[in-house]
Design a protein around this nucleic acid. Structure first.
Lengths: 122, 122
DNA sequence: TTATCATTTGAGCAGTCGTTCAGGAGTTTT
DNA sequence: AAAACTCCTGAACGACTGCTCAAATGATAA
């Protein structure tokens, strides 16, 4: 049931406090891993990913332009943008009745850039 | 070009011209974006992220070692590893009754490396 | 052989996710 | 003023996710 209860479990040729503990020390903490996972989760949806790649290319786009490029309803786009906005991934700027969005996180920009490069030349 | 003066911008069901069309041409196709989103989705879960970062550091770990480092049940780890395995993100090697897992995708290795670096020096 | 260990599998279930729908808020035009 | 336009919000709903549980598989040890 609980594999954590027995520290000697699967102790084949090495004391348990060896490699595993060393790995755990260098390892990301649970909190750090969770933070990174949350960032990845934001990119892990087709609609949000397309929105972000569109902003990566165009620099700045209003909601109706984004709605056309990703081909989903404006309401869905708005919900998606809110999620990205409250997470600090994108930022918004109002101009008249349009609202222009842009990427606001350098991490995300690099991840998008790198992953797209590798999809195309990989 | 005076893309912002495009009268069709945000005007309804017209086939888009100007900046939006240009963006969509350079843009990832829906299929490409979906593929990348699926990759990000795999990293977007705390359990899977911790498993992958552990493998990034240790190189190769068996299931029971992974179970200890991520502190969830062995069954949950196995389910997570199956997802990563069938997606080609990790690969498995049997040695006796243990099964050793390792990262099998260069893209993923780079994304993990980059994102961790930026979490720590960001 | 039987017993034990390491890992996997499938079913069931609570929780989460992304969408649509209906309506509202803010801005410009008439 | 009202109408038109862009965008946002909250609720509701089906679909998906990740976990636990019980049972099975594959491999070693007694």
């Amino acid at each position: 049931m609980d594999a954590l209860a027995d520290p000697d479990a699967c102790a084949g040729s090495e004391p348990d406090t060896g490699r595993v503990a060393a790995t755990r020390d260098r390892l990301l903490s649970a909190e750090e891993a969770t933070r990174l996972a949350e960032l990845f989760r934001l990119l892990g949806d087709p609609t949000r990913a397309r929105l972000l790649y569109a902003l990566l290319d165009a620099g700045e786009l209003c909601v109706c332009e984004l709605t056309e490029t990703v081909e989903v309803s404006d309401t869905a786009v708005s919900h998606a943008l809110r999620l990205l906005r409250t997470s600090g991934v994108v930022a918004a700027r109002r101009a008249g009745r349009m609202v222009y969005y842009r990427l606001a996180d350098l991490h995300v920009r690099m991840l998008l850039d790198l992953s797209r490069e590798h999809l195309r030349h990989g």
